[in-house]
Amino acid sequence: MQWLFENPLANMPGPAFLGLFGALLVGAIIILRIKAANIEQGDHATPLAIPDQIDPYKIAYLRGGDTEVIRTAMLDLVEQGRIVDVQKEGLGKVLSQAKMQWKVADPTDTGADLPPIQRAILRAFAIPRDPETLFQSDIKSRVHEETRPYREWVDQEKLEADPEGRLQLRKLMIICLIGIETLGAYKLAAAWMHHRSNVIFLIGMMFFAMIILPICAQHRRLSQRGKNFLRHLQSAFGKLRSVKDARSKPVEPNYAYGNASLPLMAMGIFGVSALQGSSYDPLYQSYQRAASTSSGCSTFTSFGCGSSSGDSGSSCGSGSSCGSSCGGGGCGGCGGD
Protein backbone atom coordinates (compact mmCIF):
# COMPACT_ATOMS: atom_id res chain seq x y z
CA MET A 1 0.00 0.00 0.00
CA GLN A 2 3.02 2.26 0.32
CA TRP A 3 2.80 3.03 -3.40
CA LEU A 4 -0.50 4.78 -2.76
CA PHE A 5 1.22 7.77 -1.19
CA GLU A 6 4.68 7.21 -2.66
CA ASN A 7 4.33 7.92 -6.36
CA PRO A 8 5.11 10.83 -8.69
CA LEU A 9 1.67 12.38 -8.21
CA ALA A 10 1.71 12.15 -4.41
CA ASN A 11 5.26 13.48 -4.32
CA MET A 12 4.72 16.18 -6.90
CA PRO A 13 5.92 19.57 -5.59
CA GLY A 14 3.11 21.90 -4.48
CA PRO A 15 3.42 24.54 -7.21
CA ALA A 16 3.61 21.89 -9.92
CA PHE A 17 0.58 20.10 -8.52
CA LEU A 18 -1.36 23.35 -8.26
CA GLY A 19 -0.45 24.02 -11.90
CA LEU A 20 -1.74 20.59 -12.90
CA PHE A 21 -4.88 21.03 -10.80
CA GLY A 22 -5.52 24.47 -12.25
CA ALA A 23 -5.01 23.20 -15.82
CA LEU A 24 -7.51 20.38 -15.26
CA LEU A 25 -9.98 22.82 -13.75
CA VAL A 26 -9.65 25.19 -16.71
CA GLY A 27 -10.07 22.24 -19.09
CA ALA A 28 -13.25 21.18 -17.29
CA ILE A 29 -14.58 24.73 -17.42
CA ILE A 30 -13.94 24.95 -21.17
CA ILE A 31 -15.57 21.58 -21.85
CA LEU A 32 -18.65 22.48 -19.79
CA ARG A 33 -19.03 25.87 -21.47
CA ILE A 34 -18.75 24.33 -24.93
CA LYS A 35 -21.31 21.70 -24.03
CA ALA A 36 -23.66 24.30 -22.51
CA ALA A 37 -23.33 26.48 -25.59
CA ASN A 38 -24.05 23.49 -27.83
CA ILE A 39 -27.26 22.55 -26.09
CA GLU A 40 -28.47 26.15 -26.25
CA GLN A 41 -27.51 26.38 -29.88
CA GLY A 42 -29.58 23.44 -31.13
CA ASP A 43 -30.94 23.71 -34.64
CA HIS A 44 -31.57 27.37 -35.29
CA ALA A 45 -30.91 27.36 -39.03
CA THR A 46 -34.62 27.03 -39.69
CA PRO A 47 -36.31 29.82 -37.73
CA LEU A 48 -39.83 29.35 -36.43
CA ALA A 49 -42.13 31.71 -38.30
CA ILE A 50 -44.47 33.92 -36.31
CA PRO A 51 -47.86 32.18 -36.45
CA ASP A 52 -50.88 33.77 -38.08
CA GLN A 53 -52.68 33.99 -34.77
CA ILE A 54 -50.80 34.47 -31.57
CA ASP A 55 -51.84 32.89 -28.29
CA PRO A 56 -50.60 35.20 -25.53
CA TYR A 57 -50.64 32.34 -23.02
CA LYS A 58 -48.40 30.22 -25.20
CA ILE A 59 -45.93 33.06 -25.63
CA ALA A 60 -46.05 33.81 -21.90
CA TYR A 61 -45.18 30.17 -21.26
CA LEU A 62 -42.28 30.36 -23.65
CA ARG A 63 -41.06 33.52 -21.96
CA GLY A 64 -41.20 32.37 -18.41
CA GLY A 65 -42.98 29.05 -17.93
CA ASP A 66 -45.95 28.52 -15.61
CA THR A 67 -45.23 31.67 -13.62
CA GLU A 68 -45.80 33.91 -16.62
CA VAL A 69 -48.93 31.97 -17.61
CA ILE A 70 -50.36 32.68 -14.15
CA ARG A 71 -49.57 36.39 -14.47
CA THR A 72 -51.14 36.52 -17.93
CA ALA A 73 -54.27 34.73 -16.71
CA MET A 74 -54.55 37.15 -13.84
CA LEU A 75 -54.44 40.12 -16.20
CA ASP A 76 -57.07 38.39 -18.29
CA LEU A 77 -59.34 38.17 -15.25
CA VAL A 78 -58.62 41.75 -14.22
CA GLU A 79 -59.50 42.87 -17.75
CA GLN A 80 -62.77 41.00 -17.53
CA GLY A 81 -63.46 42.73 -14.22
CA ARG A 82 -63.63 39.44 -12.36
CA ILE A 83 -60.69 40.20 -10.09
CA VAL A 84 -60.36 43.64 -8.54
CA ASP A 85 -57.82 45.55 -6.56
CA VAL A 86 -58.92 45.52 -2.91
CA GLN A 87 -58.01 49.21 -2.60
CA LYS A 88 -60.77 50.02 -5.07
CA GLU A 89 -63.21 48.54 -2.62
CA GLY A 90 -62.17 50.99 0.04
CA LEU A 91 -60.30 48.51 2.20
CA GLY A 92 -56.91 49.41 0.87
CA LYS A 93 -56.30 52.23 3.32
CA VAL A 94 -56.56 49.77 6.14
CA LEU A 95 -54.23 47.29 4.51
CA SER A 96 -50.51 47.69 4.47
CA GLN A 97 -49.27 49.82 1.60
CA ALA A 98 -46.54 47.25 0.96
CA LYS A 99 -49.10 44.55 0.21
CA MET A 100 -51.48 45.26 -2.62
CA GLN A 101 -54.18 42.65 -2.53
CA TRP A 102 -56.73 41.46 -5.06
CA LYS A 103 -59.96 39.53 -4.76
CA VAL A 104 -62.86 38.28 -6.81
CA ALA A 105 -65.28 41.03 -7.76
CA ASP A 106 -68.29 38.85 -7.23
CA PRO A 107 -68.00 36.34 -4.36
CA THR A 108 -70.53 34.07 -6.07
CA ASP A 109 -68.47 33.88 -9.26
CA THR A 110 -67.17 30.29 -9.51
CA GLY A 111 -65.63 30.77 -12.95
CA ALA A 112 -67.57 27.84 -14.37
CA ASP A 113 -67.45 29.47 -17.81
CA LEU A 114 -63.70 29.98 -17.74
CA PRO A 115 -60.92 27.76 -19.12
CA PRO A 116 -59.18 25.70 -16.38
CA ILE A 117 -56.19 28.00 -15.83
CA GLN A 118 -58.26 31.15 -15.39
CA ARG A 119 -60.80 29.26 -13.28
CA ALA A 120 -58.12 28.02 -10.89
CA ILE A 121 -56.76 31.52 -10.48
CA LEU A 122 -60.15 33.12 -10.03
CA ARG A 123 -60.95 30.69 -7.26
CA ALA A 124 -57.66 31.42 -5.55
CA PHE A 125 -58.79 35.03 -5.17
CA ALA A 126 -61.89 34.09 -3.22
CA ILE A 127 -59.77 35.29 -0.30
CA PRO A 128 -58.00 38.62 -0.87
CA ARG A 129 -54.35 37.94 -1.58
CA ASP A 130 -51.15 39.27 -2.95
CA PRO A 131 -50.73 37.91 -6.52
CA GLU A 132 -47.23 36.67 -5.87
CA THR A 133 -48.53 34.27 -3.21
CA LEU A 134 -50.05 32.28 -6.09
CA PHE A 135 -46.62 30.97 -6.90
CA GLN A 136 -46.17 29.42 -3.48
CA SER A 137 -49.59 27.80 -3.47
CA ASP A 138 -50.95 24.63 -5.06
CA ILE A 139 -52.30 26.83 -7.86
CA LYS A 140 -48.97 26.54 -9.58
CA SER A 141 -49.12 22.75 -9.70
CA ARG A 142 -52.69 22.91 -11.02
CA VAL A 143 -51.60 25.37 -13.70
CA HIS A 144 -48.63 23.16 -14.48
CA GLU A 145 -51.00 20.36 -15.45
CA GLU A 146 -52.89 22.69 -17.75
CA THR A 147 -49.83 24.04 -19.50
CA ARG A 148 -48.90 20.64 -20.91
CA PRO A 149 -49.92 21.65 -24.47
CA TYR A 150 -47.53 24.57 -24.23
CA ARG A 151 -44.73 22.31 -23.03
CA GLU A 152 -45.41 19.95 -25.90
CA TRP A 153 -45.33 22.83 -28.36
CA VAL A 154 -42.03 24.07 -26.93
CA ASP A 155 -40.56 20.56 -27.14
CA GLN A 156 -41.90 19.92 -30.61
CA GLU A 157 -40.54 23.18 -31.95
CA LYS A 158 -37.25 22.74 -30.09
CA LEU A 159 -37.59 26.10 -28.41
CA GLU A 160 -35.98 24.96 -25.18
CA ALA A 161 -32.46 23.69 -24.73
CA ASP A 162 -32.28 20.03 -25.72
CA PRO A 163 -33.49 17.96 -22.67
CA GLU A 164 -31.12 15.08 -23.43
CA GLY A 165 -28.27 17.52 -23.79
CA ARG A 166 -29.19 19.09 -20.45
CA LEU A 167 -29.00 15.70 -18.78
CA GLN A 168 -25.67 14.99 -20.42
CA LEU A 169 -24.36 18.36 -19.31
CA ARG A 170 -25.43 17.68 -15.76
CA LYS A 171 -23.72 14.28 -15.79
CA LEU A 172 -20.60 15.77 -17.32
CA MET A 173 -20.49 18.46 -14.66
CA ILE A 174 -20.82 15.88 -11.89
CA ILE A 175 -18.08 13.74 -13.42
CA CYS A 176 -15.76 16.75 -13.74
CA LEU A 177 -16.54 17.87 -10.20
CA ILE A 178 -16.00 14.43 -8.69
CA GLY A 179 -12.78 13.96 -10.67
CA ILE A 180 -11.34 17.33 -9.67
CA GLU A 181 -12.38 17.05 -6.03
CA THR A 182 -11.11 13.45 -5.78
CA LEU A 183 -7.76 14.51 -7.15
CA GLY A 184 -7.60 17.38 -4.65
CA ALA A 185 -8.70 15.13 -1.79
CA TYR A 186 -6.06 12.56 -2.73
CA LYS A 187 -3.38 15.21 -2.67
CA LEU A 188 -4.63 16.45 0.69
CA ALA A 189 -4.44 12.91 2.03
CA ALA A 190 -0.92 12.54 0.67
CA ALA A 191 0.04 15.81 2.31
CA TRP A 192 -1.40 14.63 5.60
CA MET A 193 0.55 11.38 5.31
CA HIS A 194 3.72 13.37 4.71
CA HIS A 195 2.98 15.72 7.63
CA ARG A 196 2.78 18.78 5.41
CA SER A 197 0.47 21.65 6.14
CA ASN A 198 0.92 24.13 3.29
CA VAL A 199 -2.37 23.22 1.67
CA ILE A 200 -4.25 26.47 1.79
CA PHE A 201 -4.04 27.15 -1.97
CA LEU A 202 -5.21 23.67 -2.82
CA ILE A 203 -8.15 23.94 -0.46
CA GLY A 204 -9.01 27.30 -1.98
CA MET A 205 -8.90 25.86 -5.49
CA MET A 206 -11.07 22.91 -4.45
CA PHE A 207 -13.69 25.31 -3.08
CA PHE A 208 -13.39 27.41 -6.20
CA ALA A 209 -13.99 24.31 -8.35
CA MET A 210 -17.09 23.44 -6.33
CA ILE A 211 -18.52 26.86 -7.11
CA ILE A 212 -17.33 27.47 -10.64
CA LEU A 213 -18.12 24.10 -12.26
CA PRO A 214 -21.87 24.18 -11.48
CA ILE A 215 -21.96 27.79 -12.66
CA CYS A 216 -20.26 26.83 -15.91
CA ALA A 217 -22.76 24.03 -16.44
CA GLN A 218 -25.67 26.47 -16.36
CA HIS A 219 -27.46 27.28 -19.57
CA ARG A 220 -30.37 29.38 -20.59
CA ARG A 221 -33.75 27.73 -20.60
CA LEU A 222 -34.46 28.58 -24.20
CA SER A 223 -32.60 27.25 -27.19
CA GLN A 224 -31.20 29.66 -29.75
CA ARG A 225 -34.26 28.91 -31.88
CA GLY A 226 -36.53 29.78 -28.98
CA LYS A 227 -34.62 32.98 -28.25
CA ASN A 228 -34.74 33.98 -31.91
CA PHE A 229 -38.48 33.32 -32.07
CA LEU A 230 -39.14 35.40 -28.97
CA ARG A 231 -36.84 38.16 -30.24
CA HIS A 232 -38.70 38.21 -33.56
CA LEU A 233 -42.04 38.40 -31.77
CA GLN A 234 -40.89 41.23 -29.54
CA SER A 235 -39.49 43.03 -32.54
CA ALA A 236 -42.60 42.50 -34.67
CA PHE A 237 -44.93 43.69 -31.93
CA GLY A 238 -42.64 46.38 -30.57
CA LYS A 239 -45.48 48.85 -30.15
CA LEU A 240 -46.95 46.62 -27.45
CA ARG A 241 -43.88 47.15 -25.28
CA SER A 242 -45.97 49.73 -23.46
CA VAL A 243 -49.77 49.79 -23.53
CA LYS A 244 -50.33 52.97 -21.56
CA ASP A 245 -53.51 54.01 -23.35
CA ALA A 246 -54.69 50.57 -24.41
CA ARG A 247 -57.87 50.62 -22.39
CA SER A 248 -59.00 53.99 -23.69
CA LYS A 249 -58.68 52.86 -27.30
CA PRO A 250 -61.10 50.41 -28.84
CA VAL A 251 -59.34 47.22 -29.86
CA GLU A 252 -59.41 46.88 -33.61
CA PRO A 253 -60.20 43.47 -35.02
CA ASN A 254 -56.80 42.15 -35.86
CA TYR A 255 -55.62 39.09 -37.68
CA ALA A 256 -52.66 38.34 -35.44
CA TYR A 257 -54.35 39.04 -32.11
CA GLY A 258 -57.42 36.94 -32.70
CA ASN A 259 -59.69 37.54 -29.74
CA ALA A 260 -56.92 38.72 -27.45
CA SER A 261 -56.87 42.33 -26.30
CA LEU A 262 -53.84 44.57 -26.70
CA PRO A 263 -52.94 44.45 -22.98
CA LEU A 264 -53.17 40.66 -22.97
CA MET A 265 -50.97 40.42 -26.06
CA ALA A 266 -48.52 42.87 -24.50
CA MET A 267 -48.46 40.82 -21.31
CA GLY A 268 -47.91 37.59 -23.24
CA ILE A 269 -45.11 38.96 -25.35
CA PHE A 270 -43.36 41.42 -23.04
CA GLY A 271 -44.50 40.53 -19.53
CA VAL A 272 -45.93 42.68 -16.80
CA SER A 273 -43.48 45.52 -17.45
CA ALA A 274 -45.59 46.42 -20.51
CA LEU A 275 -48.40 47.40 -18.13
CA GLN A 276 -46.41 50.07 -16.34
CA GLY A 277 -48.27 53.36 -16.42
CA SER A 278 -51.35 51.83 -18.06
CA SER A 279 -54.82 51.29 -16.65
CA TYR A 280 -53.37 48.07 -15.27
CA ASP A 281 -50.59 49.80 -13.39
CA PRO A 282 -51.94 48.52 -10.01
CA LEU A 283 -51.25 44.99 -11.22
CA TYR A 284 -47.78 45.99 -12.31
CA GLN A 285 -47.26 47.65 -8.91
CA SER A 286 -48.43 44.51 -7.13
CA TYR A 287 -45.81 42.41 -8.84
CA GLN A 288 -43.16 45.04 -8.34
CA ARG A 289 -43.84 45.29 -4.62
CA ALA A 290 -43.85 41.54 -4.30
CA ALA A 291 -40.57 41.35 -6.18
CA SER A 292 -39.00 43.96 -3.94
CA THR A 293 -39.93 42.00 -0.84
CA SER A 294 -38.99 38.59 -2.15
CA SER A 295 -35.98 37.05 -3.74
CA GLY A 296 -35.12 34.34 -6.15
CA CYS A 297 -36.89 33.81 -9.38
CA SER A 298 -40.01 35.82 -8.81
CA THR A 299 -38.95 38.94 -10.60
CA PHE A 300 -41.37 40.93 -12.67
CA THR A 301 -39.19 41.48 -15.67
CA SER A 302 -40.38 40.46 -19.06
CA PHE A 303 -37.64 37.95 -19.39
CA GLY A 304 -38.23 35.76 -16.42
CA CYS A 305 -35.92 35.24 -13.57
CA GLY A 306 -32.40 36.22 -13.13
CA SER A 307 -31.50 36.81 -16.72
CA SER A 308 -29.30 39.82 -17.09
CA SER A 309 -28.70 39.75 -20.77
CA GLY A 310 -32.18 40.39 -21.94
CA ASP A 311 -32.56 36.88 -23.12
CA SER A 312 -35.52 34.99 -21.98
CA GLY A 313 -35.81 32.24 -19.54
CA SER A 314 -32.73 31.96 -17.48
CA SER A 315 -31.62 28.70 -16.06
CA CYS A 316 -32.75 29.44 -12.58
CA GLY A 317 -33.32 26.16 -10.94
CA SER A 318 -32.17 24.19 -13.91
CA GLY A 319 -30.03 21.18 -13.97
CA SER A 320 -26.94 22.13 -12.10
CA SER A 321 -26.28 21.18 -8.58
CA CYS A 322 -25.13 24.49 -7.26
CA GLY A 323 -23.50 24.28 -3.93
CA SER A 324 -23.85 20.56 -3.55
CA SER A 325 -21.32 18.11 -2.31
CA CYS A 326 -19.37 20.70 -0.42
CA GLY A 327 -18.49 19.95 3.09
CA GLY A 328 -17.54 16.75 4.59
CA GLY A 329 -14.69 16.97 6.74
CA GLY A 330 -11.11 16.76 7.01
CA CYS A 331 -9.41 19.29 4.88
CA GLY A 332 -5.97 18.20 5.69
CA GLY A 333 -2.68 18.88 4.13
CA CYS A 334 -1.77 19.66 0.62
CA GLY A 335 1.44 18.03 0.21
CA GLY A 336 4.38 18.93 -1.78
CA ASP A 337 7.69 20.11 -0.64
Binding site: I50, D52, I54, A236, F237, G238, K239, N254, Y255, A256, Y257
Partner: peptide
Amino acid sequence: HRDEIFAHRS
Protein backbone atom coordinates in the same frame (compact mmCIF):
# COMPACT_ATOMS: atom_id res chain seq x y z
CA HIS B 1 -45.24 49.48 -41.58
CA ARG B 2 -43.12 47.26 -39.39
CA ASP B 3 -45.51 47.20 -36.44
CA GLU B 4 -48.46 46.40 -38.66
CA ILE B 5 -47.26 43.63 -40.91
CA PHE B 6 -48.07 40.72 -38.62
CA ALA B 7 -51.54 42.03 -38.03
CA HIS B 8 -52.16 41.76 -41.79
CA ARG B 9 -49.89 38.93 -42.75
CA SER B 10 -52.59 36.96 -44.53
